Each structure stands twice: as structure tokens, then as C-alpha cells.
Amino acid sequence: MRKYEVLRAVVILQAVCMVVLTVVVVIKVWPGNDRPLEKQTQIDDGSEKAEGQQTVAKVGAATITAADLKGQLYKQYGDTVLRTMMVRKAIDLEAEASELSVSSEELDRELVKMIEGYDSENRYFEVMQEQLGMTKEQVLEDLRYKLLLEKIAIVSIKVSDEEVDKYISEHSEEFTSRLQLHLQWILTESEKEASSVLQLLTDGEDFSMLARTYSIDSFTADAGGDLGLIDADDPFYNRELLDTASRLQVAEMAGPIKVDGGFAVIRLLERQMTTTMTDRRLRDEVRKQLALERADSLTDLEDELLDKYGAVKTE
């Protein structure tokens, strides 16, 4: 699996709880209506309908009412959404009792990790909105609760300075600066096709447009062949492709390059060098990582918090 696909999967898994919450909002306000559906009791001819019986869609002679929609959404997502809401209430209570909170600085640092591989913070939020329907506010709220739960999980776990030093010494490669390449590519089935595409690019054709037209990589074609930021030594990518990309100047193209699945033409959009963390930041991050490895799973912790605060369904 290419790193681009891995990133997509991770994003979807991180956001699934917020997705179902977003879906449920549909039952409250239908596009084009200014008032909640359950409040709209008047129809065009002035007669009244029972609450929830307003028609929100038609298929031939059949109709779908607000009650139908609400019932189906509740059946599919009700338990998941309810658990998410209950867990967040329990987290709030535990955080208050333990005097724990998440600072804006902590939120910003975690966000930097999440947007790695994207052009910018704005692009990351655009992808979340386009692919998952999540607003920036929803992403940040989801992230805040994740960090708060982690703090609760490790609040009583002690990690010594010696353990932190040993980990840093044994995993020094994780903390060194590294080169990252922002690439576009067009993947074709044959070397001849790749050569033809490269000639079109040399003649002045737009790379993004040709990627949408000719690339057989379904994951990146619609995005103009954008692969995002890639570590120059990323093991998920073809070695020859990365070596070639490392030698390119910004905006320069190369190909055909034989890769898994065909032949590629690439263009370098930018190169970045990651910076190492300050000593204090590095030690804090390692300490947290080691503590989380010793802690119970976050799912188990959620269950414990629900039990602690007597969370029960009332219907």
C-alpha cells in the first residue's frame, strides 16, 4: 500500500466518530430550509401535518418523510453517536476532577503531526471537508478530546529521565532532520504512454490536467496527481523514483520511471527540510509516548469512565 493510501485510511479512521455526528445533523436542518424539520408543520396549501411527517424527498410517487429519515439514521448511527456523546461527557467530568486541560499550544503541536503529508494546514482542512464533511471546528474538537483522553490515561504513570534518555539514544534516527519532497505524478500502463505524456508536458500542457486525463492511479488522478509531501527515504515508494526526485529542481519533470503498476512521470513542486524539536519538546514527546505504551487502551479507558460516572441509556 502506498503512503498516500495509508494517509487516507488514517484520516478516515480518526474522523469516523465525527462523521456520524455530522450525518445526524441532517435530520435537524434540511438544505434549503431555514427552520428545523420538526418545527415545520405547515405545507404549501396551508394545512398542517403531524410532526415529522413533512416530505423531504420524492422518488416517483413514493415519498420520504423527515420521520423516515430520522428513524433510519438513528437505526444506523444512533448507538455509535450516543456512545461518543456519553464518552465526551465522562471525559469532561474526569478532566474537571483531575484538573486537566488541553492548551492551544498542545493542540497546535498535535495538528502539525496530523497535517504532515499535506501542502499546508488549509489544504488539510479542505480535504477533511471535501472527503469527510468535517469542518475545521469539528476536527479541532475531535482532536481536543483525543488529547484530553490521553492525558487522563497517563496521569498516574511515571516515566523516569533515564528511560527517556535510553529511548532517545536507541531511536536517534526518529529525531533527526529529514528531507521531504512534494511531488506530482502521472502513472501510465506502458513506457510509451509515459513518454507521450512527458512530450505533452514539454510542449507546455498542464500537468494537473494531464494527470486527470491519463493517470491510472485512481487515488491521485482527481487531485492532479498530487502525492503530497514524501520523505526522501520513504520505504513505501519506489527507490528510483525518490532518487530521481531528489535530484530535480523545483518545477522540473522526469520520466518515464518504472514503478509498481506501470511507468511514472513526476514533477517536483517543492522540497522541505524538517526541523528537529527542542530538547524539552523532544523529551516531553518521548515521555508521553512511553507512558501511553504502558497505559490501558483508550477504548478500555472510555469504558472505565462510563462505569465510573454511571452512564446508562434511559430508553
Rank of each mutant, 00 (worst) to 15 (best):
I168Y: 01
W185V: 00
L181K: 10
V24E: 10
E191F: 03
L111R: 09
T275G: 14
R178V: 02
V159Q: 03
T63M: 00
G204S: 09
V19E: 14
D307N: 09
K146A: 07
V81E: 06
L282H: 11
R283I: 09
H171A: 02
E252V: 01
V102Q: 01
M128G: 06
E96N: 07
A66R: 07
L181H: 08
E5Y: 01
I157S: 01
L201M: 09
A251L: 12
T202G: 03
T55L: 04
E170K: 11
L93T: 10
R281I: 03
R247P: 00
E270W: 00
L111G: 04
M209V: 14
K28H: 11
D79Q: 12
M1G: 14
A66K: 06
P36L: 06
K313A: 13
L301N: 08
S156N: 15
V87Q: 09
E110K: 05
Q272L: 13
S215N: 02
A61N: 13
S98M: 10
I154W: 08
K158R: 07
A9H: 10
E191Y: 01
D307F: 06
A66I: 02
D303N: 15
E105T: 02
V286E: 08
E189W: 00
G262D: 08
L242C: 06
L290W: 09
R247F: 01
T22W: 02
T220D: 05
A264T: 08
R287T: 15
K313N: 09
S297Q: 10
M253P: 01
K89Q: 11
S297N: 10
E51I: 14
I230C: 09
L241C: 04
M18H: 11
M1V: 09
G46A: 08
I43D: 01
K58V: 11
A15N: 12
L183M: 07
D222S: 15
D234C: 14
D68H: 13
G224Y: 04
R294W: 05
K28Y: 11
V59Y: 10
T22V: 09
R178K: 15
A194L: 03
K166H: 03
L7F: 04
E96Q: 13
Q131N: 10
A61S: 12
T84L: 03
G262R: 07
P31G: 02
K28A: 06
R35V: 14
A57V: 04
E5A: 10
V26Y: 07
E173H: 14
R267T: 04
A62D: 12
S101W: 00
V20G: 06
V164R: 01
A153S: 15
V11E: 13
A295H: 05
L210N: 07
M253Y: 00
K3H: 07
